[in-house]
Design a protein around this nucleic acid. Structure first.
Lengths: 108, 108
DNA sequence: TGTCATACTACGTCTGTCGTACTACATCTG
DNA sequence: CAGATGTAGTACGACAGACGTAGTATGACA
């Protein structure tokens, strides 16, 4: 099991990747990261929600409220990726590929 | 070009990798990282030297002084990897492989 | 003589993650 | 009916690693 700390700097990218498909909210994002990573990575709540705040401030995502019927009319904060967010995601993907390549030269 | 920040947490691993072969000192490590990465990664001096301090404190490396003839008898601080350092390096390599695999699932 | 390369050290700042704790509602279980 | 568990967050302070800036000191080279 991995900690958010070793993924530091790429939590935002992971979240944006999931928001590419459709708007979502904290708890769902959290569960999806967990299942996609096959339980290898469980993001901390504080890490997740502070990423939302930061990314909304940076204009990478936008929030809106939605009262879902299936959860007994519970109000959730949904997030939607913006064009700036999509651009940032692409940049981070390129950066990641470079980084990965560099680190690989020093790892056995 | 990559910053030390995106490699955060793996600078120590990179340094240890170079020390696996033979003891070395700051400036040389710096140049080797630069050349091995083909100028893609240039570690900051402060990052490098604080990594030395941290790793010596953790027992992963040991320092010794050597007055080199080829550099006009200049005194350099050399570092040598310890057994604990080798073990730590192996752990970090495994962690890296896991992390890489997880992040890859969220990167296009 | 001055600039460049070498070889560091000191100190304070910043960012992202973490730990802990707390709220609130719904559903499930004994 | 109570209490545990799952859902869906918020608040706040601590911490570690990287960064920026600056300064020291030596030797080589032009």
């Amino acid at each position: 099991m991995i900690s958010s700390d070793v993924i530091r700097g790429y939590n935002d990218t992971i979240i944006l990747n999931l928001l590419l498909e459709e708007p979502s909210y904290g708890y769902e994002i959290s569960r999806r990261i967990r299942s996609i990573s096959e339980e290898k990575y469980v993001i901390k709540e504080t890490t997740l929600y502070s990423a939302f705040t930061r990314m909304e401030k940076n204009g990478y995502i936008e929030s809106f409220y939605q009262d879902d019927i299936d959860s007994g009319g519970k109000r959730r904060t949904y997030y939607r990726i913006t064009d700036a967010g999509r651009a940032y995601y692409r940049e981070k993907c390129e950066e990641w590929n470079l980084t990965q390549d560099v680190i690989a030269r020093f790892i056995k």
